[in-house]
Design a protein around this nucleic acid. Structure first.
Lengths: 106, 106
DNA sequence: CATCTGAGTAAGTCTTGGCTTACCGTTAGC
DNA sequence: GCTAACGGTAAGCCAAGACTTACTCAGATG
């Protein structure tokens, strides 16, 4: 149930902002933090969380760490969301059966 | 950007549990709270949050409030997620151009 | 080798929010 | 009408976590 981690991590607005910035391509912490309303260490911490959730990748390039987006980190969450639609018909059938039994039982 | 609300609301595990329970069909608070590791008022509070995020619907039936799932509440979040894949190619192109310029500039 | 820049980590603060207990209003049933 | 079930709200507590400053380390550069 790793989609839970993804949800928790993406729930924070500033962290999501950092994440969104990576859409445009790999970036060093430097650039990611620029213009954000929080300090650079804060961004570092967010990146750590994102990385641990598998949403982001990190590679060293000299003295800088280049972070890039990992779309695969989103797939579980996506599948979970999709499952709600897939379940729709099935849930309907089950529900119909349930209320049928309820009436009968009474 | 209502997907932000959805994310924030679904980030909590117990709240997500309540939400998942509604997959099986509409339920009174009673049933939703049964067996959960938290008190019934806690569940009420979670339901309020879910409702405000548009993830859940509430209807009165005598003395009980029947809650049911609102899948539409998930669509924005779903679209946001999808957009990451849609952007993939475009981001790649932009990035290619960017690094091209960078090299040229040097 | 001295210094500067990029970035992670530590420690501490302060806010957010999830939970509990206690309470109140509302409907159902004798 | 009294009492009991259902469930929302209030107040307060407590832990989690987002943020800051200060420190440290690694690589680049003169």
């Amino acid at each position: 149930m790793a989609y839970g981690n993804a949800l928790a991590v993406l729930a924070d607005p500033t962290r999501r902002q950092v994440f969104e910035r990576l859409r445009a391509g790999p970036r060093p912490v430097n650039l990611l933090a620029a213009g954000l309303p929080v300090s650079r260490p804060a961004v570092s911490q967010h990146l750590k969380a994102l990385k641990e959730a598998g949403l982001v990748e990190e590679r060293s390039e000299g003295v800088r760490r280049i972070y890039s987006l990992r779309r695969e980190g989103l797939t579980e969450l996506r599948e979970w969301l999709d499952s709600f639609w897939g379940d729709a018909l099935e849930a309907f059938k089950l529900e119909a059966e349930r209320s049928h039994k309820a009436k009968k039982g009474k």
